[in-house]
């Protein structure tokens, strides 16, 4: 199937009458996901959004429930966002990040109804990356610029049109309803060519990294690696797979609500006990935890690396920490088992 770029705004307008539609829109010099009221606001050609798509499922700040308390008890009210949504223009790395977050919010014991309700009611329409950025390394972490993992539909930009690839049943139903024209052989060939021409130039060699992380918790390499890091947490807020949060109360007298906000393992207070003891005392332990979590703990628990190679942490770090270099350094270091 195929949809011409000229017809796309119309197609989106039709969707907008039925769904909440989110797409990348311009903001200052970058793009972010926003709900759109008009199909022409969607900006698909500007590379990936500054903020990851996770915020549509796991907002930076979100009310869990409100309460009013009396001596007889408490009345609690939780509302789940079950609006039918379409997220349009998701990049493959971000789509994959949601598959990874599913492991977190639907773990072996508990389900998070806020996140999962949004996931259930959302259709993800992705767009492949014809020209990956220099900071992208998705192909090194089991992804790729036209990967469909997590998507319902993938669009491939062929110049004047998008070739529509249906990935899931949800995607199939949407495509059928949209009544896209059939793609010709020439269109298919153009899509294949776009995929072939899209080269992720940056390769990060992760051979042996996991085996190294399995044994190098106490290695002196960690004394050096974090040195530049300011502990500002920017990398964690912008990372599509980081999911740490805090829960706080917002209340006046007996009425209020409990809210969850993004938090970061880069912050000292994150692990500080009431007694004053802190298991992750300095930046060293905190930075090590970030790397260990993504490339060892998550792998041990879910058999997947918790980094999708989007490069956001590289582009946005104020002191130019480059996770690719860090991984290379860790991989090359001597491993020691003991403390």
């Amino acid at each position: 199937m195929i949809v011409s770029k000229k017809d796309l705004p119309n197609f989106l307008d039709k969707l907008i009458s039925e769904y909440q539609v989110f797409a990348p829109v311009r903001k200052d010099t970058f793009t972010v996901f926003k709900q759109i009221c008009s199909g022409k606001d969607a900006v698909l050609a500007a590379g990936n959004t500054k903020l990851p798509v996770k915020e549509l499922f796991f907002p930076q700040s979100e009310k869990l429930y409100s309460y009013s308390v009396t001596e007889a008890g408490a009345k609690l009210e939780a509302t789940l966002d079950d609006q039918q949504k379409i997220v349009f223009g998701v990049r493959p790395c971000d789509a994959k990040s949601l598959v990874l977050l599913d492991h977190v919010f639907n773990n072996d014991k508990y389900q998070d109804p806020y996140y999962l309700t949004r996931r259930e009611n959302t259709i993800l329409v992705g767009i492949g990356c014809n020209s990956p950025a220099s900071t992208c390394f998705c192909t090194s972490v089991n992804g790729g610029p036209f990967d469909t993992n997590g998507l319902d539909i993938l669009l491939v930009d062929t110049g004047d049109a998008y070739v529509v690839e249906v990935v899931s049943d949800k995607g199939k139903a949407l495509a059928e309803k949209a009544g896209f024209a059939a793609a010709s052989d020439a269109d298919q060939a153009a899509a294949a060519k776009a995929k072939e021409d899209a080269v992720v130039t940056c390769q990060v060699n992760l051979d042996g990294l996991k085996a190294k992380l399995d044994v190098n918790f106490y290695d002196p390499i960690w004394d050096k690696i974090h040195e530049k890091c300011l502990g500002c947490g920017a990398c964690t807020y912008l990372c599509p797979t980081c999911h740490c949060f805090d829960i706080v109360d917002d209340a006046v007298d007996c009425n209020g609500c409990r809210v969850r906000n993004w938090d970061s393992c880069a912050f000292p207070l994150f692990t500080l006990h009431g007694s004053g003891h802190n298991p992750r005392t300095s930046n060293k332990e905190r930075y090590r935890n970030r790397i260990m979590h993504k490339f060892k703990y998550f792998v041990d628990n879910n058999n997947e690396i918790a980094c999708v190679g989007c490069g956001r942490c590289i582009k946005n770090c104020p002191v130019n920490m480059d996770i690719r270099v860090v991984l290379e350094d860790v991989r090359g270091s001597e491993a020691r088992l003991d403390s």
Binding site: V104, F245, D246, D263, T271, D300
Partner: peptide
């Protein structure tokens, strides 16, 4: 163990000791 906790259900990320969540 008594690591600092918030969610208590293995999601908020703060109580881990290695790959184990003390809460869960």
């Amino acid at each position: 163990l008594e690591n600092r906790m918030k969610c208590g259900i293995g999601m908020c990320g703060r109580c881990n000791v290695g790959g184990k969540y003390v809460c869960k």
